[in-house]
Write a protein that binds this DNA or RNA. Structure first.
Length: 483
RNA sequence: GGCGGCGUACCCAAGUGGCUAAGGGAGAGGUCUGCAAAACCUUUAUGCAGCGGUUCAAAUCCGCUCGCCGCCUCCA
């Protein structure tokens, strides 16, 4: 397995610290507002990575944190007129609401900064004792000059950074790039007792404390959005390695951004869509498919058109699945045996192809491509009008394989019926399944009497609502129109 | 200004040294169908931003140029 490591800038063989065990720490969210699509991408990507590592037989411990104390939370508390902890509680609940709807499973541990104040204080103390940090007026700063490797992740030189620094220089810092480990609390702000007085943790230190507590001093994979590389992850390395003297992370993994009109989707630009906005219009599976149809490190352009294409692709998948399902119960076990060497080969090699795509730095885009190659082979085979026990076995095998792969990617997991039902809901189509079935029945009567005009009128009426009918040999199926 | 990334067909998107450049969408033609839809078949890049170079061999490596984006401030 190869994994792209931000630290070395290369794809490397994946070798965990202890064989068959993997510790992953992914930076979660600061709970001060609703999550947008960018948060969804990170969550989906690391969720799939976790699933795939388990699929490969690793014993995975996946930790995803919440930053529940921070400047932005405090600011938000003021504007909403509630306490900082209420802000954190509220948006943590909203986070779960969105992620649950997106089908993102809970991490094994979901630690919160405020539940690790003791550990944080211990590390800050340790860093002061070791001479890596200093206290000024109740604030504690990490002294970047004391850590020669500083900049190794984001590949920057401290002296150059100073030249281009847009940061306002805090005179109390020994070096403008020094960053806060602990902040003295101002009047009215939340605080915890510490050796340096009342205060709260800085942003970066919580991840050091929580990853060490829940995984260990060295972890296999640490991930997050690419915007966390600097300063957040750079600072984490400095703190953690200064504190333990050990390498902090073996593989740093960062997902790319979502863009709109080629620009990064972000709060500050205001060009973002919240997860719930998008789920108003699209099925969660469509969102996941959209996010996985591009490699995790590349930027993804968000647009209605892209979402429609994702929906269309999924529809192709489920249409084929419906054909496969149709076939299975309809077959008489005694009828002639049909063989299709091409399909057999495609099925046999499918898992290998899927795995080699995923082994190559979790290339979900290619893996999905392989799924559609198989879909094409299945359709071709089904078009050849096969019969018999052997065919049935092939379809069953193909179906099992698709659902196994689907479980890893967390797409392709519905039944076709569930897919159309949820499209009905996502597109807010004003007719129930029973209503549709009733009209199909009426049309069937019309067709029996060869009343084509009436039959076509019913088809038209449903089409107006966004429902398409497909006449099969023995019945009529309905679908939701895409686009 | 420093650092990093990207530029593959009409659109999206894999592929990073060697068989016919995956897959999806869109378009055109066809098969099938009461009509449709779906599916399938054919078709749409002798070429991978441009120009040079390395190599028996490059979309893939190197250099330059152009264009776009990101990070350097909170950010997934």
């Amino acid at each position: 397995m190869k994994v792209f490591n931000t630290l070395t800038g290369k794809k490397e063989d994946f070798v965990p610290l202890s064989p068959k065990k993997v510790g992953i720490y992914a930076c979660g969210v600061t709970v001060y507002d609703y999550c947008h699509l960018g948060h969804a991408r990170s969550a989906v990507v690391f969720d799939v990575i976790k699933h795939y590592l388990r699929y490969k037989g690793f014993d995975v411990k996946y930790v995803r944190n919440f930053t529940d104390i921070d400047d932005k939370i405090i600011t938000r508390a003021k504007t909403e007129g509630i306490s900082a902890s209420d802000v954190a509680r509220k948006y943590t609940a909203e986070y779960y609401r969105d992620m649950d709807r997106l089908g993102i499973a809970r991490a094994d541990v979901e630690p919160k900064a405020t539940e690790h104040i003791e550990e944080i204080i211990d590390i800050v103390k340790g860093l002061i004792d070791k001479g890596y940090a200093y206290e000024v007026d109740g604030d504690v700063y990490f002294e970047v000059d004391r850590f020669p490797d500083y900049g190794k992740l984001s590949k920057r030189d401290m002296t150059e950074m100073l030249a281009g620094a847009r940061v306002e220089v805090d005179k109390r810092k020994r070096n403008p790039v020094d960053f806060a480990l602990w902040k003295a609390s101002k009047e009215g702000e939340p605080w915890w007792e510490s050796p340096w007085g009342k205060g709260r943790p800085g942003w970066h230190i919580e991840c050091t404390a929580m990853s060490m507590k829940h995984i260990g001093e060295s972890i296999d994979i640490h991930g997050g959005g690419a915007d966390l590389i600097f300063p957040h992850h750079e600072n984490e390395i400095a703190q953690s390695e200064a504190f333990t003297g050990k390498p902090f992370v073996r593989y740093w993994m960062h997902n790319g951004f979502i863009t709109i009109d080629k620009e990064k989707m972000s709060k500050s630009l205001g060009n973002f869509f919240t997860i719930r906005d998008i789920l108003e219009r699209y099925d969660p599976e469509v969102v996941r498919f959209f996010l996985l149809s591009t490699h995790y490190r590349s930027p993804i352009e968000f647009s209605e058109e892209q979402m429609k294409e994702a929906e269309t692709s999924l529809d192709r998948f489920y249409t084929t699945l419906m054909r496969m399902n149709d076939f299975i119960p309809a077959t008489e076990p005694r009828s002639a045996i049909a063989m299709d060497k091409t399909l057999e080969d495609a099925i046999s090699s499918f898992k290998t192809r899927f795995e080699s795509a995923m082994d190559d730095d979790f290339n979900t885009a290619q893996a999905i491509g392989h799924v559609f190659e198989l879909i094409k082979d299945i359709n071709r085979f089904l078009d050849s009008n096969p019969q018999g026990r052997h065919t049935k076995a092939l379809m069953t095998r193909a179906g099992e394989m698709l659902s196994e792969v689907g479980a890893v990617l967390n797409i392709f997991t519905k039944t076709p019926y569930e897919w159309y039902q949820s499209l009905l809901k996502a597109k807010k189509i004003p007719i129930t399944v029973d209503g549709i079935l009733k009209m199909i029945e009426d049309r069937k009567q019309a067709r029996l009497t060869r009343d084509w005009q009436r039959a076509d009128a019913i088809r038209k009426e449903l089409e107006g609502l966004g429902i398409l009918l497909e006449d099969k040999k023995d019945r009529t199926d309905w679908k939701v129109r895409i686009g």
